[in-house]
């Protein structure tokens, strides 16, 4: 039983957390892909930016003498989301919109997003150095334990993990309602489907582009903050996460919001399952197993976790190039 609880803690809980973060990031990537038609490589840095804005705001709050039993980060997230959105709209106005106005091809925008990546990374490191920061400076991280009968271990998860997963679910449901019910949400899907026709239908495409950045950046800030609450804030956040979120967006079928969510969780769980030490589950039968079965039985060593998202990506592209949900048709 203890082994089973260990499995829940290390696979179900970790997978849900990683999957939620990937899903939030991948939705932004896939929306930008669907509406603006380019791979936004700076998305990981947008997540990092969001996390750092939360960090700074919680410092400001602490500086104002506010204290609470909860981490101050919880209270500033809405403001951090708003600031990240403003930053994203500003980046679009400064760097992407002029290129679109010139009629640049998507590849040019992709390369521009590399420039934006470098600027954001340079700026964040300029301000915060290369160190790591915690959002739990003043208060301890609350750990929830659910005792399980017949097990020496409890099911454990932290408070930010629980809140993060719940917020993710709320965000996904809200996005679903927005896309299916609201006028602007439907218009967004229409633009993703057929931008020329959307334009001749009188849909203001600039407005839809703004909405795309608002949703993408808002979710990126949530994802970055969630990641920061779960571990720590550091400038390197972005690169480790770029591959999984892009893999999720492509595996889900570019432009497909639901695909991105499903694939986000798929990749999150695949990663934790791949590095999980299956030897633990065999422990109760240790005595009856042959000598040669090693105690460490992970599919890939933890250091090579990055290969998991990649392998899923490549296998998907080879077997089903449009992704699991049929994505926007290839060029």
């Amino acid at each position: 039983m203890s082994e089973f609880v260990f499995f829940i803690n290390n696979v179900i809980v970790s997978g849900l957390v990683a999957g939620s973060i990937y899903a939030l990031g991948a939705v932004g990537v896939t929306l930008i892909f669907g509406i603006l038609r380019f791979a936004h490589f700076a998305h990981g840095d947008m997540m990092t930016l969001g996390a750092f804005i939360t960090l700074v705001l919680s410092w400001v709050l602490a500086g104002m003498g506010v204290s609470s039993g909860l981490p101050l980060a919880y209270f500033v997230v809405p403001l951090a989301v708003a600031i990240t959105i403003v930053a994203a709209l500003g980046l679009d106005r400064l760097f992407y919109a002029p290129l679109r106005a010139k009629g640049a091809k998507p590849v040019t925008l992709l390369i521009a997003s590399i420039g934006v990546t470098m600027m954001l990374q340079g700026l964040i490191r300029l301000l915060f150095g290369t160190g790591t920061y915690s959002l739990f400076d003043t208060v301890p991280k609350v750990i929830h334990r659910i005792p399980v009968e017949g097990s020496t271990r409890d099911i454990t998860f932290t408070q930010p993990q629980a809140i993060g997963v719940i917020v993710t679910i709320i965000a996904v449901v809200a996005l679903h309602l927005f896309l299916k019910r609201s006028r602007n949400g439907k218009a967004m899907r229409a633009v993703a489907d057929n931008p020329d026709l959307a334009q001749v239908s009188g849909i203001n495409i600039r407005k839809i582009v703004r909405l795309t950045w608002i949703i993408g950046a808002g979710l990126a800030c949530l994802a970055g903050t969630f990641l920061a609450l779960d571990v720590t804030v550091k400038p390197d956040l972005a690169f480790n996460i770029l591959l999984p979120i892009f893999a999720a967006a492509i595996v889900g079928g570019v432009g497909q919001v639901y695909g991105a969510i499903v694939a986000g969780y798929l990749i999150g769980f695949a990663e934790v399952l791949a590095v999980f030490n299956w030897g633990v589950l065999l422990r109760p039968f240790r005595d009856s197993l042959p000598e040669w079965v090693p105690a460490q039985l992970a599919i890939v060593p933890t250091e090579y976790k990055v290969t998991v998202a990649f392998v899923i990506l490549v296998v998907t592209l080879l077997l089903r190039p449009t992704g699991i949900f049929r994505g926007a048709s290839s060029t």
Binding site: F95, P98, L99, K102, A104, T108, I111, A112, I114, G115, V116, T117, M118, M119, L120, Q121, G122, L123, R125, L126
Partner: peptide, 16 residues
């Protein structure tokens, strides 16, 4: 770190 920012700026300006 400043130089990373500078190069990022250089590439977007060049593209434009």
């Amino acid at each position: 770190q400043m130089r990373v920012f500078v190069l990022g700026l250089v590439i977007v300006l060049a593209l434009r």
